[in-house]
Structures are given as C-alpha cells and as structure tokens.
C-alpha cells in the first residue's frame, strides 16, 4: 500500500466533505489570483479520492454524499469563473449531458439522486427527471435536451421491464443509436442490462461515473 498522499487543502476539504471549508478555499484561491482551472483541478483530485476511498470500503455512502455536496457547492462558485475562461465557447461546451430517472412505477429516489450528484460533480451536465417517469417522457426530454446518455433506475423487479420497453420505443422511433442507455438499481444487473440491450450497468454511484466515462470515450467518433 502506498504511503499517504499529500492533498492540497482544497482537495482535502472535498475528501472531508466539508462544504464550508471547500467554498472558502475556492474564494481565497480566486482572490489570490489562482486560475479557476487550477482550482478545478484540485477539487477534482479531491472528489476522485472520495470515489477511490468509497471503492476500497474506507468511505461509506454518507461520506460519498458529503464529498459530492462539498464539490457541488464549490463548483457553483467556480463555474462563472470557468465560463469566463472559455467565454468564446457556449456555456456548457464539452460537457456530456445525462438524463436520469426512476422508471414508471418506481418511487425510489435515494440511489438515483446520489448517482446524479456524483456524475454532476465529475463534470457532467445532469438532468434528473425524478421518480415514476414514463417512457415517453424520457424520450421527449432526451430529444429536447439533446442528451448523450439516458440513465434508468429501477429497484423493483416489477418495474425493471420498463427499461426494456423504453429501449423498444427508442428502436421503433429510430433513435436507439442516438443515445447511450444505461441501467442501475437493485432490480438490475449486468446480465439484465445485456438481456434488454442496454449499453451498460453499474452497481453504485462511483461505478456509474466510471461506466459513463468509459462508454462516452468508446462511443466518441462513432456518433
């Protein structure tokens, strides 16, 4: 096992899930003339470490949540500065867009919200439709928002099949290749994802970030 890595104070604040400290460090870094890109770098190192520690079992869901919340707060302060840096580009240029929702009949909220938060703080533009989302709504919103990924959550075996029907509708509408479709939640599995023709499955929020990142890289250039 490697020795303890030294993290910058901003990274450490994210790891500690200390929202106040993180925000304050962003403020003072910007005030001292540090570039927003450099600050973003430190924050990103922090949230990656949070993900790593969750992966090794050292961190638990509440720690993951706290880290993500601290990251989200710090990012909100940092984003206008980042936009100035890239002022010639459109506001959210370069960010992949992800549409999330729990499928129709499924009222489970917690896991999907955490996935959304983790994706967001890892640099994605997330649109969360909430719970009990009918297939038609996923499709109309995906088109309206021009998303890259549709993420479906299902915790009930009785609702999991909704994901299959959504994929069927996308095929019927000739839209299947336009979107990456991923699934998650207790009623799903990698086998299930394969069976219904989804593009991927993740066990938890940190795996979801890895999954989406990997799929987007793999699909770049084909679309």
């Amino acid at each position: 096992m490697p020795g303890p890595t030294q993290f910058s104070p901003a990274s450490q604040a994210i790891i500690d899930g200390d929202s106040q400290e993180a925000l304050q460090l962003v403020e003072s870094a910007l005030a001292s003339g540090k570039s927003a890109a450099a600050v973003l770098d430190e924050l990103t190192q922090g949230i990656h470490e949070v993900g790593n520690r969750f992966g090794t079992g050292e961190f638990f869901l509440p720690d993951l949540m706290a880290g993500a919340k601290a990251m989200k707060g710090a990012m909100a302060r940092l984003e206008p500065e980042l936009a100035k840096l890239t002022s010639r580009q459109s506001d959210s240029a370069g960010k992949a867009r992800i549409l999330l929702g729990s499928v129709k009949g499924d009222l489970h909220d917690i896991g999907r919200s955490l996935v959304g938060l983790m994706l967001e703080v890892n640099g994605y533009e997330v649109h969360d439709l909430g719970v009990d989302v009918p297939s038609e709504r996923f499709i109309t919103e995906a088109q309206r928002l021009n998303v890259d990924v549709i993420g479906l959550s299902s915790l009930l075996t009785t609702t999991a099949r909704q994901a299959e029907s959504l994929i069927g509708r996308l095929i019927d509408a000739g839209l299947r290749k336009r979107y990456l479709v991923v699934v998650g939640g207790a009623a799903t599995s990698s086998g299930f994802a394969e069976e219904i023709g989804a593009d991927g499955w993740a066990e938890n929020a940190t795996d979801a970030v890895k999954l989406v990142g990997g799929l987007l890289v793999a699909s770049r250039g084909t679309r």
Partner: peptide
C-alpha cells in the same frame, strides 16, 4: 425526503 445526505447520518452511522 431522505436521510442519506444529512450530516446527522454521516456522524452517527459509524
């Protein structure tokens, strides 16, 4: 609502 994001949860679960 849900309790996962509460500091209370983070503090007391361990």
């Amino acid at each position: 609502g849900n309790f996962l994001a509460e500091e209370h949860t983070r503090k007391y679960h361990r």
